[in-house]
C-alpha cells in the first residue's frame, strides 16, 4: 500500500515538473511547428534568474514569503525576454523552413546560450534553497514529502487548466487553435499569424523558464542544466503527441509514474524507462498518443 502511494505521489511530482517543462515546448511546436531545442536554455535561464534573484532577495531582510513572488517574477520575465530576443533576432528570419532545419537552428541557439549563461553567471553554482524548505513537510501514509513538491502538482494542474482555458475559451486562444490546425487558411481569413507567433513563443519561453525557476530551489544551479532537460522534454511531448497540451499532460504522467515505479521496484532499469515508454508508445501509435491529424500532401 505505501508502495503504491509512494509511486503515485513521486510519479505525480515528477510528472508535474515534466509537464511544466514540456507544456511550453509543445505549445510552440503546435503553433509554430518549431521543435525548440533552445527550450532547454530557457529552462536554464529561468533557473539562474530565479536562483540569483532569490539569493539577492534574502540579503534584503524582507519577509521570507516574498521570495516566492521574486522567484516567479524573475524566472518568467527572464524567459520572456530571452524568448523575444530569440524569436525576433533569429527565428523570424527562418519561419517556414523545414521542421528538422528548425530543430538544428534551435540547437545552434542552445549551444550559444550554454556559453552565454556561463559568461553572464559564471561557473559557480547558485542556490535558492530557502523556499524549498520554508513550506514545511507533510506525512502521507508514513512517508514524508516536502510541501513545496506537493504544491508543484497544484501549480502544474493550474498551468494545464490555464492553457486549456486560454486556448478554448478566449478569442486569442481560438485564433491560435485555428493556426494550429491550418496555418495557411488562418492567414487567409486574416489572422495576423506573425503576431501570434511572437506571443506564443514568448509564452512558451516563459513557461520553460518558469519550470527552471520552480526547479531551482531543489537543485544546485550549474552550467549544462539546459542540455540535460531538453531530451527528457522531447520524450514527453513525442510520447504525448507533438503540439498537443493534453498529450504533454498524459505523456508526463505516464513517464512520471513509469519512472517512479521503476525506481521503487526495479532500480536497474531507471536509465532507459523513459525511452522505453516512448518507444512502446511510438510502436503502437507512430504519432504519439494525442497526435494532431495531418493531411497528406498531394
Amino acid at each position: 500500500m505505501t508502495l503504491l502511494l509512494a509511486i503515485l505521489i513521486d510519479g505525480l511530482i515528477y510528472a508535474s515538473w515534466l509537464f511544466i517543462v514540456a507544456a511550453g515546448l509543445t505549445l510552440v511546436y503546435g503553433v509554430m511547428r518549431i521543435l525548440n531545442m533552445a527550450h532547454g536554455s530557457f529552462y536554464a535561464i529561468g533557473a539562474y534568474a530565479a536562483a540569483s534573484a532569490v539569493g539577492w532577495y534574502f540579503t534584503l531582510g524582507l519577509p521570507a514569503w516574498g521570495a516566492f513572488a521574486i522567484l516567479l517574477l524573475a524566472a518568467i520575465s527572464a524567459g520572456v525576454v530571452a524568448g523575444l530576443v530569440v524569436e525576433r533576432g533569429i527565428l523570424r528570419i527562418l519561419h517556414g523552413r523545414d521542421e528538422v532545419i528548425m530543430v538544428l537552428v534551435t540547437y545552434g541557439i542552445l549551444l550559444i546560450f550554454e556559453d552565454l549563461i556561463k559568461l553572464i553567471w559564471g561557473i559557480q553554482a547558485y542556490y535558492a534553497y530557502q523556499p524549498y524548505g520554508m513550506l514545511g513537510r507533510s506525512k502521507i501514509g508514513g512517508l514524508t514529502f516536502v510541501n513545496y513538491d506537493l504544491i508543484l502538482i497544484v501549480v502544474a494542474a493550474l498551468i494545464a487548466g490555464a492553457l486549456w482555458f486560454g486556448l478554448n475559451r478566449t478569442r486569442k486562444g481560438k485564433l491560435l487553435r485555428a493556426v494550429i490546425h491550418d496555418r495557411e487558411s488562418a492567414e487567409l481569413v486574416g489572422i495576423n499569424v506573425k503576431r501570434l507567433f511572437i506571443t506564443t513563443f514568448a509564452i512558451g519561453a516563459g513557461l520553460g523558464a518558469l519550470a527552471g525557476g520552480l526547479a531551482a530551489p531543489a537543485i544546485a544551479v550549474n552550467p549544462g542544466l539546459g542540455i540535460e532537460v531538453i531530451v527528457l522534454a522531447f520524450a514527453v511531448v513525442v510520447t504525448g503527441g507533438l503540439g498537443s497540451i493534453e498529450g504533454a499532460l498524459v505523456g508526463a504522467i505516464l513517464i512520471g509514474l513509469a519512472r517512479a515505479a521503476a525506481v521503487n521496484l526495479l532500480p536497474e532499469i531507471e536509465l532507459f524507462v523513459i525511452y522505453g515508454v516512448m518507444t512502446c508508445v511510438l510502436i503502437f501509435r507512430p504519432h504519439g498518443l494525442f497526435a494532431l491529424p495531418t493531411a497528406r500532401r498531394i
Binding site: I101, G108, K118
Partner: peptide
C-alpha cells in the same frame, strides 16, 4: 576554450541562413 560552443552555434545558424 571557454566559449567554443558559441562559435559552433553561430556557424551552424550562419550556414543555415
Amino acid at each position: 576554450p571557454n566559449a567554443w560552443q558559441i562559435i559552433l552555434g553561430v556557424v551552424l545558424i550562419f550556414i543555415i541562413i
